[in-house]
């Protein structure tokens, strides 16, 4: 069954909780509500043979509500049948950043979910061992969030690890130390496209994010 028919079957199975399927560049993706993620994964695996979990990623739409998005890639391996790939996305809000774990369906989701928790801070209900995987136990921040600066924040975990701020001045990311923009100045992001001095990070990114999302939402035909 090609992907759009699978999406239709998913919509029939969970009426009202599955969004419209979208296609771009030969890939189909669909939004689902986060309550039915585990059931949807089980339905896809058992009834439609999407038995291969390729990846679980998370995206931080800083400035939008709901803030996070968890992206699952499922695939049916093409042994004797047609290969089908489907992307299932679910939005997670900042206030209740939890999603059901799909470990009962795919054992391989274990490490993916731990990494999403480590990098983004989204907790997975029912995960047997939800602890950090790439950073050390006790690291207090979630690095891939947009309000976490690239150079890091100093932290100390005696006996285990420590972290310092990486020097960004003169580096490839930002122009040399600039005073924070005053009211009336063009924001740093327009003068130097990729500059975001850490102190003004929240302000710049939030505005930029709001501006970009308006455009992108219009283009993608979604309601905000």
């Amino acid at each position: 069954m090609p992907a759009h028919e699978i999406i239709a079957a998913l919509q029939r199975q969970f009426p009202g909780q599955v969004g419209q399927g979208r296609e771009s560049r030969d890939e189909w993706s669909v939004d689902v509500d986060r309550e039915i993620v585990r059931d949807a994964a089980a339905f896809l695996k058992n009834d439609h043979g999407l038995n291969f979990l390729v990846d679980i990623s998370s995206v931080d739409h800083f400035g939008e509500e709901p803030r996070y998005e968890v992206v699952y890639e499922f695939r049916r391996l093409s042994e004797g049948t047609d290969e089908v790939e489907l992307r299932v996305k679910t939005k997670v809000s900042e206030d209740d950043a939890t999603v059901d774990s799909i470990i009962p369906v795919f054992q391989g989701a274990d490490w993916h979910e731990r990494e999403v928790f480590d990098m983004m801070g989204i907790k997975f209900n029912g995960h047997p061992d939800l602890r950090r995987i790439l950073m050390w136990e006790g690291y207090p921040y979630y690095p891939l969030r947009k309000d976490f600066p690239l150079e890091g924040i100093p932290s100390e975990m005696p006996g285990e690890a420590f972290s310092l701020i990486a020097p960004m001045e003169g580096g490839p990311f930002v122009s040399p130390a600039m005073p924070p923009p005053k009211v009336g100045d063009a924001p740093a992001t327009t003068r130097e496209p990729r500059a975001h001095p850490a102190s003004s990070l929240r302000v710049d990114l939030k505005e930029q994010a709001a501006g970009l999302h308006k455009d992108s939402n219009q283009r993608m035909g979604q309601s905000a």
Partner: peptide, 8 residues
């Protein structure tokens, strides 16, 4: 690697 995880 000027990032949060690398000792400089």
């Amino acid at each position: 690697y000027r990032s949060y995880a690398v000792l400089q």
